[in-house]
């Protein structure tokens, strides 16, 4: 990813016209790592949604992976989204599909052959230690297990850009450490990683460049 000059003024899907994010400008090099920090309500999720192309900025210019989002037509966005992995704060798993099918979903949408899908999904589920739960529906899984399914779904397609919104919120310390090792490894392999969290202990243990948000403003970057 090359998130060049993401500066946009009042942004975010706010119907009331209240500015959720204001005058953000930053640049994350391809293959970089960023913590996205700030208190609850600071706008972390909104910023990740912008980067995930789930909403468009109301002002300013946003460039994601060399594509100027404001200029790009609707048709150009799906291919872009397929190169982005997103771990949602609320997981957003499909309740009627098994854990396996949830993880396989991005690959099926991308039209990968079923043989490759089986190999990739099985490997990824083993990676998040969920291979025993492949047939379970999300409702039959604990919060932490659902979060790991969401993580597996985000990384199974080997995204160029990985966005994670409070990915350790439902994990115990050991699982959180395992996740950080996974993310670091992905980052080392070239994936740009942005992790939003308010888990300060985690950040202390894994120091790295951070974007600090407060009340919709960027306090510090790098």
């Amino acid at each position: 990813m090359e998130c060049v000059g993401l500066h946009y003024r009042p942004a975010g899907g706010n119907r009331a016209g209240h500015e959720v994010l204001r005058d953000l400008s930053f640049d994350i090099p391809e293959g970089g790592f960023r913590w996205l920090l700030g208190p609850s309500g600071a706008g972390k999720t909104s910023l990740l949604r912008l980067l995930h192309l789930a909403i468009r900025p109301t002002s300013g210019r946003l460039t994601v992976m060399d594509t100027e989002v404001g200029d790009a037509g609707r048709r150009a966005l799906p291919a872009l989204r397929r190169r982005i992995g997103m771990v949602f704060q609320d997981f957003r798993l499909l309740p009627h599909l098994s854990a396996y099918d949830n993880v396989a979903l991005p690959l099926r949408i991308a039209g990968r052959p079923e043989g490759q899908i089986r190999a990739d999904v099985t490997e990824t589920m083993r990676w998040v230690a969920l291979d025993k739960k492949a047939k379970s529906r999300p409702a039959e899984l604990s919060g932490g297990e659902q979060q790991r399914v969401a993580i597996a779904r985000a990384v199974v397609g080997r995204p160029v850009l990985l966005l994670a919104d409070e990915p350790t919120g439902n994990l115990d310390d050991i699982q959180a450490e395992r996740l950080m090792v996974m993310l670091t490894e992905l980052n080392r392999l070239g994936t740009t990683v942005i992790v939003a969290t308010h888990n300060d202990a985690l950040v202390t243990r894994h120091p790295g460049p951070a974007l600090r948000l407060n009340n919709g403003r960027l306090l510090a970057s790098g």
Partner: peptide
């Protein structure tokens, strides 16, 4: 919305 977010085309 989820499938759309995962990059499904119209």
């Amino acid at each position: 919305e989820i499938v759309h977010g995962l990059g499904a085309t119209d």
